[in-house]
Amino acid sequence: MRTIGIIAEYNPFHSGHRHHIQAVRQAFGADCAVVCAMSGNWVQRGEAALADKWTRTALALRQGVDLVLELPTPWAVSSAEPFARGGVGLLTATGVVDTLSFGSEAGALPPLQAAADCLTSPAWQEVLRQGLAEGLSFPVARQQAATALLGPAARCLQGPNNNLGVEYLLALRALESPLRPHTVPRQGAGHDEGPAPSSPHASASYLRERILAGDPAPLTPYLTAPEEAILRQDPAALDFGLRGVLARLRTMTEKDWSRLPDSGEGLHHRLFAAAQAATSLPQLYALAKTKRYPLARIRRLVLWAFLGLTAEDRPAALPYLRVLGFTQRGQILLRQMKTAASLPILVKPAHAARLPEEARRLFALEARCTALYDLCRQKFGQTPGKNEYTQNPIRF
Rank of each mutant, 00 (worst) to 15 (best):
D234I: 04
P235Y: 00
P235G: 05
P235Q: 05
A236F: 00
A236W: 00
A237T: 08
G241H: 03
R243G: 10
R243C: 10
R243E: 14
R243N: 14
G244A: 12
G244V: 05
G244C: 08
G244L: 09
G244W: 07
V245Q: 00
V245H: 01
L246G: 03
L246F: 09
A247Q: 13
A247W: 13
A247F: 14
R248K: 15
R248N: 11
L249A: 05
L249Q: 03
L249N: 02
L249F: 05
R250V: 07
T251Y: 10
T251G: 12
T251I: 12
T251A: 15
T253G: 10
E254I: 06
E254R: 14
E254W: 08
E254G: 14
K255S: 13
K255G: 12
K255M: 12
D256M: 07
W257H: 03
S258H: 07
S258Y: 04
S258C: 12
P261Y: 02
P261N: 07
D262P: 04
D262L: 12
D262C: 14
S263M: 05
S263P: 05
S263W: 02
S263I: 03
G264Y: 04
G264Q: 10
G264R: 07
E265S: 15
L267P: 00
H268Q: 15
H268K: 08
H268E: 15
H269K: 13
H269Q: 13
H269E: 10
R270Y: 10
R270P: 04
L271I: 02
F272R: 03
F272W: 13
A273P: 04
A274Y: 01
A274Q: 02
Q276H: 15
Q276V: 08
A277M: 14
A277Q: 15
A277V: 14
T279V: 15
T279H: 14
T279C: 13
S280N: 10
S280I: 06
S280W: 10
L281Q: 06
L281A: 06
L281T: 07
P282R: 09
Q283H: 10
Q283D: 11
L284K: 03
L284C: 11
L284R: 03
Y285K: 11
A286E: 15
A286F: 12
A286G: 13
L287G: 03
L287H: 05
A288H: 01
A288T: 03
K289M: 09
K289A: 07
K289G: 04
K291N: 14
K291R: 15
R292G: 01
Y293I: 02
L295W: 13
L295T: 15
A296K: 05
R297P: 01
I298L: 04
R299P: 02
R299Y: 06
R299K: 15
R300K: 11
L301G: 00
